[in-house]
Simulated scan of single mutants.
Amino acid sequence: SIDTGGEEKAVSYGKLLLATGASPNKPAELDDPRVVYLRSTSDYRRLRSLVHEGVRAVVAGGGYVGSEIAAALVGNGARTTMVYREAKLLSQMFPSSIVERVEDSFHSAGVELRSAFEIGEIVAENDHVSVVGASGEAVDGDVVVVGFGVHPNIDLAEAAGLTVDGGVVVDSEMRTSAPDVFAAGDLVVFDDPLFGRRRVEHVDHAENSGETAGKNMAGSSENYEYTPMFWSDLFDDGYEAIGSLDGHAETIETWNEDGKAAVVWYLRDAAPIGVLLWNTWDSVGKAKQAIADVKSGKLAVDDLRTVITPG
């Protein structure tokens, strides 16, 4: 049933798609327009209306989303400060060789970096908002953007009795434990052909899983045999990647001659779990094939450094 302004109405279906996505993790329900959890178009529009030359912006969180937002804010004239708990920016994702380059580019762009900052709370005052650390230190701004990750919206699936395990579990055709109910996007747990059962939060996965689910709801019988990729641009640098970028994992790095482009393979138990293509383009297909070849025994792990030329 659906809520139509205080009144529930039952809607019947033959096939149903769950595409409820994910919601931002929030440290507190702070009802202040100057605190933005960037997820929807309306979130973006509100943030854009608050940002102008000289405005003080604080980004809480130093991960994938936080780093992208900080780069965009300073590019639009905001005096931008990042606060995050890690000792180095994006060290949870990148090896030290790339972390150094990232920090240099953020410093050069004018972003103030506050590392090892344990965030305690966000406080809204009359003339400013503050991110307060566990030690009591406060960083003031005119706007705060929170990037603490997201969680899948699985309440409806749980209420319907569908199988849930960190997300809505689907089979190879994107079908849930209910035969006529399909799911796609950020909320699904699926079997990746290269990396096994996982949940992925990125537009590439949402588009491709949604396409497969839609076709199967319309009568096809296609398997979702796809490994999603993701990407980002940070000032003059950019990357594409697949799998898990674990900054604590063993890595195999290959750099080009000018030291601006790299291919980084992430390993766990002597097997690839992800690859970072740093300033290296049009190589995702090669990376996927190489990982498949390692899994099948056609390629040795040590030979990964020769598969893709950086740049």
Results as ranks from 00 to 15, higher is better:
Gly5Lys: 11
Glu7Thr: 11
Ser12His: 04
Gly14Phe: 01
Ala22Glu: 03
Asn25Arg: 13
Asn25Gln: 13
Pro27Phe: 01
Pro27Ile: 03
Glu29His: 09
Asp31Ser: 14
Val35Ile: 15
Tyr44Leu: 07
Tyr44His: 05
Ala60Phe: 06
Gly61Cys: 12
Gly62Cys: 13
Gly63Lys: 06
Tyr64Asn: 08
Ala70Ser: 12
Ala71Ser: 14
Arg79Pro: 00
Thr80Ser: 05
Met82Phe: 01
Arg85Val: 15
Lys88Pro: 03
Leu90Asp: 10
Gln92Val: 11
Met93Pro: 00
Pro95Asn: 06
Arg101Ser: 14
Val102Cys: 07
Phe106Asn: 05
Ala109Pro: 11
Leu113Gly: 12
Glu118Gln: 10
Ile119Cys: 02
Gly120Ser: 09
Glu121Pro: 01
Val123Met: 00
Asp127Val: 13
His128Trp: 12
Gly133Trp: 04
Gly141Ile: 10
Gly141Asn: 13
Gly141Ala: 15
Gly147Pro: 04
Val150Gln: 04
Asp155Ser: 14
Leu156His: 06
Leu156Asp: 09
Leu156Phe: 14
Ala159Pro: 06
Leu162Val: 10
Thr163Gly: 04
Val168Ala: 07
Val170Ala: 02
Asp180Asn: 15
Ala183Ser: 00
Ala184Tyr: 05
Asp186Thr: 05
Leu187Arg: 05
Val188Lys: 03
Val189Met: 02
Val189Phe: 00
Leu194Gly: 11
Gly196Asp: 09
Arg198Val: 14
Val200Ala: 13
Glu201Ala: 15
His202Asp: 00
Val203Ser: 06
Glu207Gly: 03
Asn208Asp: 04
Gly210Ile: 06
Ala213Glu: 08
Asn216Ser: 02
Met229Tyr: 13
Ser232Asn: 04
Asp233Gly: 12
Asp236Tyr: 05
Glu240Pro: 01
Ile242Ala: 12
Asp246Asn: 15
His248Thr: 15
Trp255Pro: 12
Trp255Asp: 12
Asp258Lys: 03
Ala262Gly: 08
Leu267Trp: 01
Arg268His: 14
Pro272Phe: 02
Trp278Arg: 06
Asn279Phe: 11
Val294Met: 02
Lys295His: 09
Val301Cys: 04
Leu304Ser: 15
Thr306Met: 13
Val307Ala: 03
